[in-house]
Each structure stands twice: as structure tokens, then as C-alpha cells.
Write a protein that binds this DNA or RNA. Structure first.
Length: 517
RNA sequence: GGCGCAUUCGUCUAGGGGCCUAGGACGCCGCCCUCUCACGGCGGUAACACGGGUUCGAAUCCCGUAUGCGCUACCA
């Protein structure tokens, strides 16, 4: 790898207007990977210039989502460093310092046009189907006049004196991108209330934080020439830009609540694993490689090249994520799967009320996620498994591994082990529809009760010889037993399930079911 | 309206002038395996937005058009 020409410093700058959605999370991820990969520095900055929409709560959420993904920052909230502070609201003095500089060098000028005047101009332009850019009316106002009007209390803004010509910047993914300066004209950098405008704030932050590479969504491409103009006015080095393609929902619109899960926490509540979500997010806009499903963050840093990203927007596909999650689960060892399951089931409150959570799980992932969120915001303590539940979870883990895509799948599949036998109407009907069910159940109970060593290898042959002995089709025997022990038609392997129940419970359940018919 | 970015199977993508009668993955369909559901295996379905060039030859280069998205604010 070529020696980096300078110290690499990147930043991720979300605005705290809500939770961190997957699109932003992805931007954070790429920044992190790029920084680590190049032995660079990663700064987390909070763009809370928009006071009305920013909340401290949101900052906390962002911080926690970043941590959950393992994206540690070198500098930022809770990790102060040389470039503090990290909230734009706390950086006002810095902005004004730079503003002074620009005013001093004549790059900025005061504009007294009122919003109404500008609006009129804009409307006129629109009526003529003409592009509107600021006319530059106040551009040549003599300094004395400006001073006098200011003193008189007239409201004014500060505009950038944009030079004529073109502005070209380099994009790491697309090469040179060119804009005509007169397509945007002299833009405002300081509002009449003295606050600073977005484009100025970003540039000042990036300059003062010595950012070398700006990695952000491609919705910022159009802002970039204005920012470059500011860099140049400041005499600062223009960083490299990498505008990454946006992430859309299945309807090709920006990801929003309507698309189901749009934040990490919701996905994990539905039983997706962060490891997988991270890799999925990373590999959108890049060539898929099956081996990457199990990659760790460190693997991504080592092997994933942000410069190889595609340039067109991609759509978030929950189906593929689900498949990837299943693949990931299947390559997990017994112990680790057991741990993950335990952690997950605790979080969704399964151990507290298995039956109730089972109902939720059957209602769908959204219901489950909503319940988790509700519990967490109410700060209800998660109830860890008792000894018996823990043992059961561990034993079951390898038996359900092949059947799960998300951890939540465990609940409908194996939830019945954790509660007393119960039959729904459908289960009873199925049982009654199964030939000789009562006889099969009774006979199986008797045979199993007589088994001295309770092991899968002993249970299986016993059950397998039942069909012939009773003159019933094998399928009917298995179906009756499955329904009889669990009350449902989908379970882990039959012999293993009987074994997990233990002799007494298994025999008891089968007898109970038989009595029902 | 102006400017910009984008445009290969339904979705994520490979492809950077001949290797492409366009490859892989998810999904979907079928078959096999099988005690249910799955896993797994095998096979199939399906795309270069359109129109012009350039070239012996274009998915690949150029120009238009269309579509989508973004910016066009004293939003970020």
C-alpha cells in the first residue's frame, strides 16, 4: 500500500434529530473503516446547528448505536481530544473567528436585501422559467454605506463573494466534478440573527479539525462546490471527497419508518445480529462475497476497500439480510449460539413470560421489536434465565441452529419447551385428523416409559419401530408424536425433542395428549 | 425551470472495446435429501433504460432523450 501523503483524519457528523438510521450508520461505518485502514484518526462530531430539531436524547442514542456497532471514535463526545468541542452549538466562537478572517480579507460582504425582496426576485425568475441566483445587489455596496445602515439597525446577512468561473473538486469515486459558480451565486454564510449557515459551519469544522477526507452521502455533492469556494477563500487545503451512494427502502425512496426496521436497535430486537447488519451494510454498493458474512469489524478494516464502492443508490433488502443472518447463525458454535440466544431471549423478556412472548413472536417481528422498545424505554429490568431455563436454552441451541434465520425464530420453534403443554384448536384438529393418533400416543408413552437409558440413540429405534408394530404409516406416527408432545407441527427433531423433555415429561405429555382424543 | 449525480435480472452486484449467446448472490419455481419445518445439493426463471454516433467490433467510449434522486433556503 502506498504511503499516505499526510495524516488521514476523517469525521462522521450526524445531526441529532432522531435515532441513527441505517443510512447514517453506514456512513459512520465507512468512515471508521477508512480511518482504521489508513492508520488515521476518526472524529465524531455532532451537527446540532438546527437547535429546534436537535435533542440530547438523540445524541445519546447515536453514541450508543455507534458503540453497539463497535465503531469507536478517537475524538468526540465522551472522548475529548485536541479538536474539542464536538458539538456545533459549542463551536460558535470558532465560526466567528473564521468569519472575521473572511470579512477582513474582503471575501464576505454585508447584504441588506430582505427576505421579502429576495422572494419577489425568486418568483419573478420562476415566472419567466429562469434559474434564480442572488443578483449580487449588495456586492458593491461601499463600506461606509454598509456601516451606516448597520448602525441604523437595518438587518443584514453576510454573503460569500463567489468568484466567477468554475469550481472543480475531486471525488474519490467519480473523479472530477465540475460546477459553474454562477449556478449558485453569492450564498449566505451568516444569517441576520448572527447564526452561521450549514455550509460555513462544515467547512470551518473540517478545516479546524484538520479533516483530510470527507466521506459522506452523495446528497452533499451539490453543496460541495460552495464549500470548496469557502476553503479557497480561507486559503485552506481542500480535502478529498468521497460521496457514497444513498441507501433506499424497497420503494426506492429514502429509508424511512414505513420500510419497517430502519435502525440498528430495531433490527437487533427482531433477532438480527449486529455483526451481520454491519457486513450487510458494508457490502451494499460492493461486490458480494459469501465469505464476508462472518467477517468481524477487524476483517472489514483489513479487507474492505471503500474506494471500490459503486456509485448508484442501493435498496435495503431485508430478505437478503435475513438470509445472511441465517448463514451466520449456522456457522456459530454451540456455546456461542447458546450465549447469543440467552442474551436475546433475556432482552425480549422471554424468560419472564415465555407464553406471552410466544404470542408476540407469532404476531410478527414488528410486534416483538415494539415490545422490546417499550420495555427498554420503561427501564424494565431484563429478567435473565433461571438455572433450568438456561440449561434448556443451551441444550436447544444446536438443535434449532439449522432452522433459524433470526434469533427470534427460536421462540415459535422451541418456546413450547419452556411452558406446559397447550393445544390450540388447530393442533387438536390436526391430531384428530391423524390416523390412529390416540393409539400411537398411548403406545409410545408406554414404550418410552419403559426405557432404562434416556438417550437419543435409544429413543430413535423405539419410535421407528412403532409404525410397523401398529400398522400405521410412519408419517402418521411422527406427526402424532410431534403434535402430542408440543402442541404444534413444527419443532426441532422429534427424537432430540423427546430426549430434551426428559422421560417423565415426554411420557406425561404424550399421555395427556392421548387423553384428549 | 437550472445545475449535479445516477441508470446491467424484482433486489445487491461482476463487467472498464472482442474472454458476454452478460457471471455470482438473495428472492421465486422445480427436483433430490427428509420424522415436521428448515439446512444442504442440483437445475430453472430473469437484466445491459431508449435513440443516435465512434469502431472491423460496445454493456463497456461520445452525444442526446427518458426516468430516479439530490441541491437550487437567512434547512442540515
Amino acid at each position: 500500500m502506498a504511503e499516505p501523503p499526510q495524516k488521514i483524519v476523517v469525521r462522521f457528523a450526524p445531526s441529532p434529530t432522531g435515532y441513527l438510521h441505517l443510512g447514517s450508520a453506514r456512513t459512520g461505518l465507512y468512515n471508521y473503516i477508512f480511518a482504521r485502514r489508513n492508520a488515521g484518526h476518526f472524529i465524531l462530531r455532532i451537527e446540532d446547528t438546527d437547535l429546534s430539531r436537535s435533542t440530547d436524547e438523540a445524541i445519546l442514542q447515536i453514541v450508543s448505536s455507534m458503540r453497539e456497532m463497535g465503531l469507536e471514535w478517537d475524538e468526540g463526545p465522551e472522548a475529548p481530544g485536541a479538536h474539542a468541542p464536538y458539538r456545533q452549538t459549542e463551536r460558535q466562537p470558532i465560526y466567528h473567528e473564521y468569519i472575521e478572517k473572511l470579512v477582513g480579507s474582503g471575501q464576505l460582504y454585508a447584504c441588506f436585501c430582505t427576505p421579502e425582496e429576495l422572494e419577489t426576485e425568486r418568483q419573478a425568475a420562476q415566472a419567466e422559467k429562469r434559474a434564480w441566483v442572488y443578483s449580487g445587489k449588495c456586492r458593491a455596496l461601499p463600506a461606509e454605506d454598509a456601516e451606516r445602515r448597520r448602525a441604523a439597525g437595518e438587518p443584514w446577512t453576510l454573503r460569500m463573494r463567489v468568484p466567477p468561473g468554475k469550481t472543480v473538486f475531486h471525488d474519490l469515486l467519480r473523479g472530477p466534478v465540475e460546477f459553474d459558480n454562477d449556478t449558485f451565486g453569492d450564498f449566505i454564510v451568516q444569517r441576520s440573527d448572527g447564526t452561521i449557515t450549514y455550509n460555513l459551519a462544515v467547512v470551518v469544522d473540517d478545516v479546524s479539525m484538520e479533516i483530510s477526507h470527507v466521506i459522506r452521502g452523495d446528497d452533499h455533492i451539490s453543496n460541495t462546490p460552495k464549500q470548496v469556494v469557502i476553503y479557497e477563500a480561507l486559503g485552506a487545503a481542500v480535502p478529498e471527497f468521497l460521496h457514497m451512494p444513498l441507501l433506499f427502502g424497497t420503494d426506492k425512496k429514502k429509508l424511512s419508518k414505513r420500510h419497517g426496521a430502519t435502525k440498528l436497535e430495531q433490527l437487533t430486537a427482531e433477532g438480527f445480529l449486529v455483526d451481520v447488519v454491519r457486513n450487510y451494510l458494508c457490502f451494499l454498493s460492493a461486490e458480494f462475497d459469501e465469505s464476508m458474512i462472518a467477517w468481524t469489524l477487524d476483517d472489514l478494516v483489513e479487507k474492505f476497500d471503500v474506494l471500490k464502492l459503486g456509485t448508484s443508490a442501493s435498496i435495503f433488502d431485508p430478505e437478503k439480510l435475513r438470509w445472511m443472518n441465517g448463514r451466520f447463525i449456522r456457522q456459530l458454535g454451540d456455546v456461542e449460539l447458546g450465549e447469543r440466544l440467552e442474551e436475546y431471549l433475556t432482552r425480549v423478556g422471554f424468560y419472564r413470560e415465555p407464553a406471552a412472548v410466544e404470542v408476540l413472536a407469532k404476531a410478527g417481528p414488528e410486534a416483538l421489536a415494539a415490545a422490546v422498545e417499550g420495555a427498554e424505554s420503561a427501564h424494565a429490568p431484563a429478567l435473565p434465565p433461571d438455572e433450568e431455563q438456561e440449561g434448556l436454552t443451551r441444550i436447544l441451541a444446536p438443535l434449532v441452529r439449522e432452522k433459524m434465520d433470526v434469533l427470534a425464530d427460536f421462540i415459535p420453534m422451541a418456546g413450547w419447551f419452556f411452558r406446559p403443554l397447550a393445544f390450540g384448536d388447530e393442533a387438536v384438529e390436526r391430531l384428530q385428523a391423524t390416523p390412529s393418533a390416540a393409539e400411537v400416543l398411548r403406545e409410545a408413552a408406554v414404550v418410552l416409559a419403559g426405557l432404562d437409558v434416556w438417550a437419543v440413540e435409544r429413543i430413535e429405534p423405539l419410535v421407528r419401530e412403532l409404525p410397523q408394530r401398529l400398522g400405521v404409516k410412519p408419517k402418521a406416527v411422527f406427526a402424532a408424536l410431534r403434535l402430542g408432545m408440543s402442541g404444534q407441527s413444527v419443532t426441532p427433531g422429534l427424537f432430540e425433542s423427546l430426549w430434551v423433555l426428559g422421560r417423565d415429561d415426554a411420557v406425561g405429555r404424550l399421555s395427556t395428549a392421548a387423553a384428549l382424543l
